[in-house]
Design a protein around this nucleic acid. Structure first.
Lengths: 137, 137
DNA sequence: TACTCTATTTAGATTAAATCTAAATTTAGA
DNA sequence: TCTAAATTTAGATTTAATCTAAATAGAGTA
């Protein structure tokens, strides 16, 4: 429903050379609006009310495409699902093994590498795992 | 078959307060012997010839137990499977999105954090993704 | 040794995240 | 409008990982 998020999504899609279909706009805008780090399935369910006919495959396809294009980031933790992050500034994440929540962690000395031992680096992920503030008690 | 690896595995299990059953010793020794970063299923298949009756569940249970105990590390990449690493020194990994191989990356300024924004940090993972040396060409 | 309780392992069924497939729909260009 | 390419859809399929219930192995006691 957030028009601003949809406009921003549309712009980002165009800039990434991805046709801004209604479904893609809604997937990306929906990711913007959730300040958590939703999984593909969580997004699919969240989208259900706004885009009743959207299919799971479209959500997965769109998210994977946008990761490839560098528009969003994928997050791989000890949890079963892949999560997605719309924020492009480099930062780390903390994964709570108990409540499964993911927290943003400001990343120090963020020297982004483009090559490493001869390998071409396209992205990097720093993930901490443990017990979050809430679950420690 | 490697007796030395089995002895080392047995010692590590005892130190971690885990009963060193034949199967657990073989799983850990098998992980030592593979210089790659095998998935649970790859280990299961590799073990097949030495421990014909070992079950998938035992391999998964053992690996998960050892991750919990801090004896080994789990690796979460853009690939579907979880991989495992027997090396305990902190280091990063590079995941090739084409050939799916995982390379060790020496990790600079390895200041291991134990707390972060109030969260209790138990482990950390640094994973780079891209095209490896071989696949770039 | 015999008995009991607990820990571990096993084979196969089950779950669930993610992908695949083939048909339907939408879009862009002639 | 017509055609070809791109996108979406619903549901089937795949597969990594977990779960279940029974079998086996180990430890402690008499």
């Amino acid at each position: 429903m957030n028009k601003a998020a949809q406009l921003e999504a549309s712009e980002l899609l165009k800039n990434a050379d991805v046709y801004p279909s209604y479904q893609r706009i809604m997937v990306l805008a929906s990711l913007f609006e959730s300040d958590e780090h939703p999984s593909a399935d969580a997004l699919f369910k969240q989208l259900g009310s706004n885009v009743p006919t959207i299919s799971r495959a479209t959500v997965y396809n769109t998210l994977n495409l946008l990761v490839d294009k560098g528009v969003i980031r994928s997050l791989h933790t000890a949890g079963a699902e892949t999560h997605f992050d719309s924020v492009s500034e480099t930062h780390g994440h903390f994964f709570c093994r108990k409540c499964k929540k993911i927290y943003d962690i400001p990343q120090q000395n963020t020297e982004v590498k483009h090559e490493l031992d001869g390998h071409l680096v396209e992205s990097q992920e720093l993930v901490f795992t443990g017990l979050c503030k809430e679950c420690r008690e």
